[in-house]
């Protein structure tokens, strides 16, 4: 993942007015819990208008990559709430989610703003990240949850809003 590419994507999100929230390792990094990753995970608000903003932002960041046309509101609001986009750079990929079963959606994730290089970034709070990660099956996620719990002194009931 190149620094410039990530900043370009985050800047495009802000410029498009995208309603999103970063989760996963990229979000953890903004809270000082740092591990390497290949992807950028984000929830987006599930409305046709917002999916339009997502497509506009990605087209802006990736020079009108025609593959972006395959990211549709019909899918993200319908049977396919998880879309993985591999941009032409070949250096990272984006996991775009509108909901996670009954567990999470854009509206259920508390967020805060962080700033990097003048770009306002919407990041899930440590408690929200902990809640997303603590009950998943991947060992890596459980380990992330434990690091968040230690770092932010989160209890078992934390983030269970």
């Amino acid at each position: 993942m190149s620094r410039e590419e990530l900043l370009r994507v985050l800047g495009a999100f802000e410029a498009a007015g995208l309603e999103y929230v970063l989760v996963g390792a990229t979000a953890m990094a903004f809270h000082g819990v740092v591990r390497a990753t290949e992807d950028v995970d984000l929830f987006v608000r599930a409305t046709p208008e917002n999916i339009g903003r997502l497509r506009a932002a990605l087209r802006n960041a990736y020079d009108d990559d025609p593959n972006i046309d395959a990211i549709t509101a019909d899918d993200l609001l319908g049977d396919y709430p998880a879309v993985r986009y591999y941009p032409p750079s070949g250096d990272l990929f984006l996991d775009i989610l509108t909901r996670l079963g009954e567990v999470a959606s854009f509206d259920s994730i508390t967020m805060e703003y962080k700033e990097v290089e003048g770009i306002r970034v919407r990041v899930a709070t440590p408690a929200a990240l902990y809640r997303l990660k603590r009950n998943t099956v991947r060992p890596l996620d459980r380990q992330d949850a434990e690091m968040l719990r230690q770092r932010f002194h989160l209890g078992e009931t934390e983030g269970s809003e």
Partner: peptide, 24 residues
Amino acid sequence: SRAPVLTPADGSFERFVQLCARLR
């Protein structure tokens, strides 16, 4: 070896992108 590194939040973005670049 899988565990995230706990760092001060200031500057953690730079450390993050460096780690990701190293992974690649």
